[in-house]
Write a protein that binds this DNA or RNA. Structure first.
Lengths: 206, 206
DNA sequence: TAGATTTTTGTACGCTCATACAAGATTCTG
DNA sequence: CAGAATCTTGTATGAGCGTACAAAAATCTA
């Protein structure tokens, strides 16, 4: 009992440490530069440690992506819970997709390398789909009851594509700042919405 | 003189054959799967041939990207030359960015892998910037004289981001077809433009 | 056709990286 | 404290890749 508790504790600690280290390496060097040796060095451990706590590198990798997504989603979830009007919820979603500390060229690049890898690796594709579905359903919850189904699909697709595209531009040219990116998305949203719909979002809904 | 002509011919033929083969491999396997051996096999040649006609793999790679960009741009340039109204030129640009035969999940993925690599490799970043600058200036030539500078920058950024984002969505989830993608971009454009501006684009300009 | 030049082939070297593993260090147990 | 279990280290192995190169084949020249 006692030994079991301790053993599990240390194992979990190491796993988290290694995944956090992997995350830092990933943000700095991208998926390509995230080698086993670098992860261990970043964690201050020996190169062979990964094989002890993980079945293989893929396990570290998936853990890292989940870790990353959790960090991002926690922020959005907290903001969504605090939001009172539809517009505030929209702000939470959009701003949550451009974290102040994360809308950076190297990070945009790192994220891009995951998207690229998702084409070859079905497991990645699944993680991506999950993340994207959450965004879509968040947007849908803001717009629901406002428009017909096809318009809603269009609007949420456009907004999602806009967000992704701005990240891509960040990675490629770094020609847009965080505040400008958010402003651009809202500019797009305002253009998409009719006058009455925009007013509707300003009412307190919950 | 005569020998020089012949020698140059064969060298150019092989280089083009190899670059075309590299392009096919790239579209199918992405940047990651584009190995020297595969390129040579695709071209029906021996593995060592690359070293004879190219200084290294990078040279093949940059040649392949240029080859790809040329293919895409030829289409846009031809459509632009034939366009008479501003709206037609806009259609040429937008539809040219979604080639019917190329708006495919594997191709979107391949393109994405180049964007991801551009983060680490400055040479790639240069090629990407060139390609993107062309899109922006094409868009600017359509909108010029219509709006003030900041609105123009906003609009062209949003449209460019929308196009990129839709390609990214294609790669990630394949949840949007070519026609729908084009329709979405135009839906975004129409939302962005005021009524008078949209009418302005329907006049014959040249 | 003989020799010279160009083109192509096949292979071998060196590098990077993930993974496996034996040996050492640490912590727990009785 | 001795012995066992757990944890950590450092290194070795092998696969995949780009590249260099010697030898073979093909083509050209006189």
């Amino acid at each position: 009992m006692a030994t079991h508790g301790k053993r599990t504790r240390i194992e979990d600690i190491r796993r988290v440490e290694l995944i956090a280290a992997a995350h830092r390496v990933f943000l700095e060097h991208g998926l390509q530069g995230m080698t086993s040796a670098r992860i261990c060095r970043e964690a201050g451990m020996s190169p062979g440690i990964l094989a002890y706590y993980f079945k293989g590198k893929d396990e570290v990798l998936f853990g890292m992506v989940r870790y990353n997504n959790r960090l991002l989603m926690e922020d959005v979830i907290a903001r969504l819970a605090a939001a009172r009007t539809g517009w505030a919820r929209l702000e939470a979603i959009v701003e949550g997709n451009f974290p102040a500390s994360a809308f950076t060229r190297p990070i945009a690049n790192a994220w891009l390398s995951v998207c690229a890898e998702a084409g070859a690796n079905p497991q990645y594709a699944r993680l991506q789909r999950l993340f994207y579905r959450r965004l879509r359903s968040n947007l849908a919850s803001v717009f629901e009851g406002m428009s017909d189904a096809t318009r809603l699909r269009q609007a949420s697709l456009i907004i999602a594509a806009l967000i992704d595209g701005l990240w891509l531009r960040k990675a490629a040219a770094d020609d847009v700042g965080r505040d400008e990116a958010i402003a651009l998305v809202f500019s797009g949203i305002r253009s998409l919405l009719r006058e009455g719909e925009e007013q509707h979002l300003r009412h307190v809904t919950r």
